[in-house]
């Protein structure tokens, strides 16, 4: 049993901790923090890092087939940026006392999740445009909020990531614009990509607020500053006029501007599909995870060689 004195100390520390948060001060790795705050961050930051790394795969699928040298270089650089984001995020999570290897192991065993959006396949070049426009667009809404999150290393990583993400989003939109200003075949390609990526992009914000188990505590600790539904609405409000400008149609017959709410109304998300993909049965869950495990397994001897060489040199 814990001595009484320690319990009192912990209660006092927890109060001080909440005071820091309420005063909008950042929590740093060496500061005292409740275990739950630490674990929530390890879970969230590592999940975010894994999403960056797994997210390289669907776009990587089109690097070899990019239609021009300029597009190829831009796509390669973009996917490389995602690897860079993974690096910052793994490092931010490591400040909380978990190693990169442990996190990668959790990804491979299925203990840690990553964003479900990457469990959908990229079927045409237009998907590269749609991912930049919609997926990065949705990610930015979440990440801009996270630049003000209470945990310092995470917030600072986000500042840097947001700059690159907004560039990616513009690049994606520009691919869509080029397609929509092109031939009929190109415009059909763009519409088909929007049809396939629209609903999964809305699902990126997570379950509805009344079904989101972590929201209340996350808001109190200022890990999140807006709810899933607020962020989703913001994304739809941003994106609907962009689709109009492109001249393609969002696949939702209920999407309509509501003058009294000053927001777009929209139709019901297929939550069965959402939970099916979360539980591992989406179109590409197995392939994505297998690709990550394969790269890690095939890299084992390379990592071992680098370590052995470094220690041989020292001795």
């Amino acid at each position: 049993m814990m001595p009484k004195q320690n319990i009192l100390d912990d209660a006092k520390l927890a109060d001080q901790f909440q005071d820091h948060i309420d005063a909008d001060e950042k929590i740093e790795p060496k500061d005292w923090m409740p275990d739950k705050y630490r674990n929530t961050h390890i879970r969230q930051i590592s999940q975010h890092a894994h999403s960056e790394i797994v997210g390289m795969l669907p776009e990587g699928n089109w690097i070899g087939r990019a239609p021009t040298l300029r597009r190829k270089v831009a796509l390669l650089a973009k996917v490389q940026d995602e690897a860079g984001h993974g690096l910052y995020l793994y490092s931010a999570a490591e400040t909380l006392g978990i190693s990169r290897e442990e996190m990668i192991d959790q990804l491979h065993t299925g203990k840690a999740k990553y964003s479900s959006i990457f469990n959908y396949p990229t079927l045409s070049w237009a998907d590269i445009g749609a991912i930049g426009w919609l997926v990065d667009g949705a990610a930015i809404i979440n990440q801009v909020m996270l630049t003000r999150t209470s945990f310092g290393p995470y917030a600072r990583a986000m500042v840097r990531i947001c700059k690159e993400e907004s560039f990616h989003q513009r690049q994606g939109y520009e691919i869509m614009l080029t397609l929509c200003r092109g031939t009929n075949v190109q415009k059909e390609m763009a519409q088909d990509a929007l049809n396939r990526w629209w609903w999964p992009s809305l699902m990126m914000f997570g379950p509805r607020d009344n079904e989101s188990p972590h929201t209340e505590q996350s808001m109190k600790w200022k890990i999140k500053r807006k709810t899933n539904d607020e962020l989703r609405q913001q994304f739809i409000d941003n994106t609907a006029p962009q689709a109009d400008f492109l001249g393609i149609t969002i696949p939702d017959p209920d999407l309509k501007w509501n003058e009294s709410r000053k927001h777009y109304d929209f139709g019901e998300i297929d939550w069965d599909e959402f939970w099916t993909v979360v539980k591992g049965n989406g179109p590409m869950n197995k392939e994505r995870l297998d690709a990550r495990k394969k790269a890690w397994k095939e890299g084992t001897w390379v990592r071992e060689a680098a370590l052995a060489y470094a220690s041989n040199k020292v001795h």
Binding site: I53, G64, V79, Q80, A83, G86, A295, E298, V302, R303
Partner: peptide, 10 residues
């Protein structure tokens, strides 16, 4: 470029 996303370490 075929290796992008499949390297032995990040």
């Amino acid at each position: 470029s075929e290796l992008c996303g499949h390297g032995p370490t990040l």
